[in-house]
Design a protein around this nucleic acid. Structure first.
Lengths: 184, 184
DNA sequence: ATTGCCTATGCAACTCGTTGCATAGCAGGA
DNA sequence: TCCTGCTATGCAACGAGTTGCATAGGCAAT
């Protein structure tokens, strides 16, 4: 389980409340780890009880109080321990691949518009990555260690999206060819 | 939830028992959908109760009886309905990416050997894909619709592994550079 | 005025998914 | 002979993850 560790990394990069974390998981961190606010609040309470993180109540005017968490010594130690554990292979859940094979038992043409929509989502994500790269890493020759590591992860995301777009074009060409060969 | 649908596709491609399905999920289907035998047995019972699949008891000598399942009419109808639903964006759980960002708060060099091991796993998987492609699709100009669709999914797997290998080389180069810059 | 959205946290109930264990006969190697 | 491993299914318990709802004040637009 790495949700704890993803939260630890995020809090080390910058302390924040559960709500703020949930938004980070919707945005940047969500690229490689997803979580809902429910999961995050539950795990934060457990981590605080275990002494991995420390909480500070912060009053705000015009909005509810919030609890700002930051990583504690035990959290850092746990992160170092976890880093040295074997890396689990990625768990894959690729719904579209299942649907493509399912299309053999139905009408392949029925998938085309959904694949097109899916492709648009990936194209938009790639554009966001490239824009974020320009904004957050304007000078690639002057990065500190933390930025270097953030950037190599971002490069992975960019290459993943490029590969996916190429593959989706391949999928669309295949579906269109099959739809032309034997029209329903 | 697509486990039901992944099972339906697999049973349409070829009927089989729960045990056989579990092995398929360890091998080919596991490329884009994972499941343990426990999940599979539970879902099979539910699907049979819902009339999506039909079971036939088969006695075997020298080994326990098995229940061979095959997709029923309701299952086919459900699959067609599901095919027309919107495709969910892939859920990403990329532990290695979390660890790479975590390395900024510990020793980047500590990750190198694990990334190397991870890279070997991906290289082996790519080799298996390429070998399977040779075996199952010897003549790429003579594929029927089902094989065309299976092959386009396999092409996606191959491209994913190639991209991942390139990225892991990039990660290793970055980690080694950081380790050389500030030795622990 | 009312509607809807944002910040901020949380409970309750549920489904999904994993882990450990059990059964039970057969095959193959040390 | 004992140990390991394969086929084949399943129970029980737990942890992970989702969904729906609740609270509660403030802000902005209609």
């Amino acid at each position: 389980m790495a949700l704890e560790h993803a939260i630890l990394v995020s809090l080390l990069e910058r302390p924040g409340s559960g709500y703020e974390l949930a938004r980070r998981f919707d945005r940047s961190i969500g690229r490689f780890w997803t979580a809902t606010h429910q999961q995050i609040y539950r795990v934060l309470r457990r981590m605080e009880a275990d002494g991995w993180i420390a909480a500070e109540e912060v009053a705000q005017d015009g909005r509810p109080d919030k609890k700002v968490y930051s990583a504690a010594g035990d959290g850092r130690a746990e992160l170092a321990r976890w880093l040295r554990e074997p890396v689990e292979p990625e768990t894959v859940r690729h719904e579209l691949a299942v649907k493509i094979r399912a299309a053999a038992f139905d009408d392949p043409a029925a998938l085309i518009s959904e694949v097109e929509r899916h492709r648009e989502g990936h194209a938009a994500l790639l554009a966001r990555y490239l824009h974020g790269e320009q904004r957050d890493f304007p000078d690639l020759d002057a990065l500190d260690a933390r930025q270097e590591l953030q950037h190599v992860v971002l490069r992975g995301g960019i290459e993943y999206e490029r590969m996916t777009l190429d593959w989706l074009d391949d999928v669309l060409a295949t579906l269109r060819r099959l739809a032309a060969d034997r029209p329903s």
